[in-house]
Amino acid sequence: MDSSLFQLLNYGVYGTAILVMLIGLYGALVKKSLLKVVIGLSVMESGLNLLIVALGYLKGGTAPIFSEGFLNGSNKIMVDPVPQALVLTAIVIGFGVTAVALSLVIRLYRHHGTLNIDEIRNLKW
């Protein structure tokens, strides 16, 4: 691959990850609907995962698996496995966080009959 194209990819992958993260954070901060806040957090998590995995990528590396093809082949470069293990944990925990957040949303809707943050804040308990 051309090195100039690869340079562009450099900005592309990091830029996309940061942009998606910021879009999700914007949604979580600005939107009034509680479900939209949870969606924003989920989008932000996706961008963050992409950022961490992209940090561990090595040019020309293969996946960190010692298969027969790798052991007999000539390419001896592997990408960094540590960020991948980190993101593996983060995705599973992120699902648990989303499930608990959504159950809180259902419970709030059962109690107040609305999901708008302002209306929920104005009600007296």
Binding site: A63, V79, Q84
Partner: peptide
């Protein structure tokens, strides 16, 4: 990006 484990997890979850 050469991370098949993470790809499987993300696809399923």
């Amino acid at each position: 990006l050469q991370a098949p484990d993470v790809a499987l997890t993300e696809a399923a979850i």
